[in-house]
Amino acid sequence: MNWLIQPFEFEFMRGALAACVALSLGAAPIGVFMLLRRMSLMGDAISHAILPGAAIGYLVAGMSLGAMTLGGIAAGVTVALAAGAVARRSALREDASLAAFYLISLAIGVLLVSLRSRNVDLLHVLFGSVLSLDPDTLLLIGGIATVSLFGLAVLYRPLVIECADPAFLRQAGGPGSLAHMGFLLLAVLNLVAGFHALGTLMAVGIMVLPAAGARLISDRLDTMLALSVSFALAGSIGGLLLSYHLDVPAGPAVVMSLGTLYLLVLAITAARPHRHFSTGEATV
């Protein structure tokens, strides 16, 4: 068991572990709702949009945690709202407008960062720096996970009803759009946290991959949420160990490990004979 424990004798590994635990608790449940609302691509678009926002923060204040975080949140919220508005008004389906958004965002972001940078910084924003998080960034990631869990607890019931039958909630006078907006805000916050640890290209991984695996196994929402957090924990910690022992970059290693876990679940569930729900009585 030494290979499991020994790496965490180092402070930077303990920091990375804390970040992964916080991200797993915060982002994975959000990912489940994102998946169920068929918004996985939206998550991708938001996470790419965070880049130009953070880059503007970087241009103004250098590698400043506060400036990059605020810029990222502002840009993420803007794109989340804009994508929804464009999808309503244009002939393009939402996925097409989202794809356009995140390509543009990524290009602007990389250009902005390279206006004043060393390659190290560019690598940092693209792939994160989970192995060199300072205490302030750790606090931020932990704080976002806390806000996210409490926020989701408050939003849970309206959000579930809004997912299952949006028109019903509206008719019953429930806070449907508040639930949707609150959810988007939580998603943006978690993607900003993910951005600091895993970078703009990988942040959405810890949100979407565990959720996808959980969806394959369960058809109950509560089980799915618990499973997604477990997958996120197992995958991200596995990725850190992989990174330590094989000396590979941590961000991609974490996402690789999450992805492997997902593929394993996919293979196992696909190999099983197709699962039927207990049919009960057929009272049509």
Binding site: L36, V154, R157, I161, D165, F168, A172, D219, R220, L221
Partner: peptide, 28 residues
């Protein structure tokens, strides 16, 4: 409404679906 806006793939049970009707009494 005529066309159900229900997302039938959303993972809730029939019981939970029916329980939505108590929203006005239960709130958040």
């Amino acid at each position: 409404p005529q066309t159900a806006t229900v997302d039938r793939r959303f993972p809730i049970s029939v019981y939970e679906f029916v329980a939505m009707g108590a929203w006005q009494r239960m709130g958040v």
